[in-house]
């Protein structure tokens, strides 16, 4: 989680960081999910992919290179944040169209079922996708065919500027799964252990052949929607979000439990600083793509 936070700070220091969707405040979701997945489980996510990609094991240097458009990225500058993928580490891919990865994830899950891989597909999507028809079509087919699919909704409260209560008629997002008979649970998405436990239960249920599962992971987006979007939430509301910072919450708990000492924390920070500095060096040194390479793999 600390790496994710520090990496995003480094990204913003780049001269042209582009249009980025940060995971600040949502790190426990990415890290908790990836802690619960096996390497073979295909992980699909939305365009808010930076935290999820790092948590899944995409090397930070390569990811930073991808985000700024260098050839050294896993997708050689063709994917960027919105479409980054690295199947070799289990990141099947992000998809920049809101709700767009849901139907694809159903297909990925179908392939696991049909090929008997024993893997479970997990699709992480935002609350903004909950109003999309693709979610409802996906829930229906996943239930009907008992697909090994976990649908994990990262509910950070807003689709850009529109609050969940103004976009979704259902009182609770978990209600959306009920008509299809899909088990659903709401989890504190700022508690990394709770996320990992809930995802683990859902994934292992799907792996055992019990069909899909819907999870609502509740968190707070601590930054504006994107690096180019105005913050329209009242300052007092944004200030209040500090109390939901998953890193601070976890740090406090580990200290209270006597697991984390000052020395251990300092060592962790130094390790992360070094890793991020190395990532920056790698990304800055990476070459730009040959323009003609735009015609490859079309």
């Amino acid at each position: 989680m600390v790496l994710l936070r520090s990496f995003e700070a480094a990204l913003l220091r780049q001269p042209k960081p582009g249009f980025q969707l940060l995971s600040r405040g949502e790190e426990a979701i990415a890290v908790g999910i990836c802690a619960a997945l096996q390497r073979k489980d295909p992980f699909l996510c939305s365009g808010r992919s930076i935290g999820p990609a790092l948590a899944r094991g995409v090397p930070p240097g390569g990811l930073l290179a991808e985000l700024i458009g260098k050839d050294g990225g896993p997708n050689r500058g063709r994917a960027g944040r919105a479409h980054v993928s690295m199947p070799s580490v289990g990141l099947f891919g992000a998809h920049g169209v809101v709700g767009g990865n849901l139907t694809v994830a159903a297909g990925v899950a179908l392939a696991q079922q049909q090929l008997g891989t024993g893997a479970v597909a997990l699709c992480l999507f935002g609350d903004g996708a909950c109003g999309s028809g693709t979610l409802h079509e996906t829930l229906n087919i996943a239930a009907l065919w008992r697909l090994p699919l976990v649908l994990a909704c990262d509910n950070n409260g807003y689709a850009v500027s529109t609050a969940v209560r103004d976009a979704i008629a259902a009182p609770r997002l978990t209600d959306l799964a009920a008509p299809f008979g899909i088990p659903a649970s709401a989890v504190d998405g700022t508690d990394v252990d709770a996320v990992a436990a809930a995802v683990g239960e859902a994934v292992e249920g799907a792996r055992a052949g019990r069909g899909p599962w819907f999870l609502e992971l509740q968190c707070a987006r601590m930054a504006p929607h994107s690096t180019l979007t105005r913050e329209e939430r009242p300052p007092a509301e944004v200030e209040e979000l500090r109390g939901h910072d998953p890193i601070t919450l976890y740090e406090k708990r580990l200290r209270a439990e006597g697991i984390l000492s000052d020395a251990l924390w300092a060592g962790l920070m130094a390790e992360v600083d070094a890793e991020v500095a190395e990532a920056e060096r790698f990304a800055l040194a990476a070459v730009w793509p040959d323009p003609e390479a735009a015609m490859l793999d079309v």
Binding site: G107, A111, G133, N140, L144
Partner: peptide
């Protein structure tokens, strides 16, 4: 398992095919 009726839902039908193809079918 190999000849599957789908509901009247073209978005998920095409998405299923796209994802399943990417994952090996």
């Amino acid at each position: 398992a190999r000849v599957r009726n789908t509901p009247v839902a073209e978005a998920v039908t095409v998405g299923l095919a796209a994802g399943a193809a990417a994952a090996g079918l």
